[in-house]
């Protein structure tokens, strides 16, 4: 009898556990949407709106890379290539050939996913440093292509003449509209990532991170799964590139170089690997810092390096996990 009662209680507890999680997620999303609405509606300063739009674009990059680094445990040092592929594909298709930008968005995603498949098939068999080197080389090759194929990409002087996005009567010329477009996409991407992580695929992915040997042994096709996530993160990179191109309306190879790849990895690491909100935090910090440190532009890299070192020493799990741990500790002390 007691056992049965215990069992029942346990079931209910578990049930409420699950519901708690659902409610928590809903609250997080609601808070996120509210913040976006408030920031978007009440910010008059175009400079601030612009910065926040860039934060959104970088968040997309960090989200995609976070799935790869934080969850699948794979490093990519050439992810700016997909960002660039997204930007250049839409620039060329809509700018040079006059195709509707929305159609060129689909093409950009398609091209990025296809290239990720071709590159990932052999590279993801590598691991650790070798994978880093492989993706690094890939990023460099793509960047050289942007620079040297000047008849198509405009070369190092850049690509001019990217059309402004329009949807029916709505023009995304205004800073506010673009802000909402970008953050709407970010919200969609966050929901998508969370759905993936909560699914069979996400569990398999997290299992690779915890122990690849065991996940192989239980029958997870780890290579295929890594490839899928690589393709997914490439597609998010391409979407970010698309949004970037139609926002600044002028792109050049520097925006997609090696340093950008490193910056993307830094966002993920600082924000906290394996955390959706960590990607947002990392992207915000690394977009804001250069603006704040405008006066010391020469020392920017030094400050970046220092911050990365300090975070790695004191909060190796990243800021999100680090702050959460601090909060938990403080709460336990109070009790």
């Amino acid at each position: 009898m007691y056992a049965l009662a215990d069992c029942f209680r346990l079931k209910r507890q578990n049930g409420s556990d699950m519901d708690d999680n659902k409610i928590k997620n809903r609250i997080e999303h609601a808070v996120f949407i509210c913040i976006i609405l408030v920031l978007g509606l009440f910010t008059q300063n175009t400079y601030y709106l612009q910065i926040m739009t860039f934060i959104g674009i970088n968040t997309l990059l960090a989200l995609g890379l976070n799935m790869l680094i934080g969850y699948a445990g794979q490093i990519s040092l050439g992810h700016a290539a997909f960002y660039g592929i997204g930007a250049y594909t839409t620039a060329i298709l809509s700018g040079t050939f006059g195709i509707s930008p929305w159609l060129s968005l689909l093409c950009a995603i398609g091209v990025a996913v296809l290239i990720a498949f071709v590159v990932g098939l052999p590279t993801l068999r590598l691991s650790g440093y070798y994978l880093g080197m492989g993706t690094l080389g890939f990023g460099m090759i793509v960047n050289i292509l942007f620079r040297e194929w000047s008849s198509v990409t405009g070369g190092s002087s850049g690509f001019v003449g990217i059309p402004v996005l329009e949807a029916g009567k709505v023009s995304f010329m205004s800073g506010q509209n673009y802000f909402f477009l970008v953050w709407g996409v970010v919200l969609g991407a966050i929901l998508m990532c969370r759905r993936i992580l909560a699914s069979r695929m996400g569990r398999a992915l997290r299992s690779i991170h915890d122990g690849e040997k065991a996940s192989l042994a239980v029958g997870v096709n780890t290579h295929y799964l890594k490839l899928q996530i690589f393709m997914f993160s490439a597609s998010l990179g391409a979407v970010a590139g698309f949004l970037y191109a139609h926002f600044v309306l002028f792109i050049s190879p520097e925006s997609f170089g090696f340093m950008v790849s490193v910056k993307m990895v830094t966002m993920v690491v600082i924000g906290g690997m394996a955390s959706v909100w960590g990607a947002l935090l990392g992207a915000s910090l690394l977009t804001l810092l250069p603006e704040v440190l405008h006066g010391f532009a020469e020392y920017e890299m030094i400050v970046f390096g220092l911050i990365l070192m300090v975070v790695m020493i004191f909060m190796p799990q990243g800021l999100t996990r680090g702050f959460l741990d601090m909060y938990e500790k403080a709460r336990k002390k109070r009790q």
Binding site: I196, S199, M201
Partner: peptide
Amino acid sequence: TRSGFWGAV
């Protein structure tokens, strides 16, 4: 089980 990427999304 068989749900994959599209199933999750």
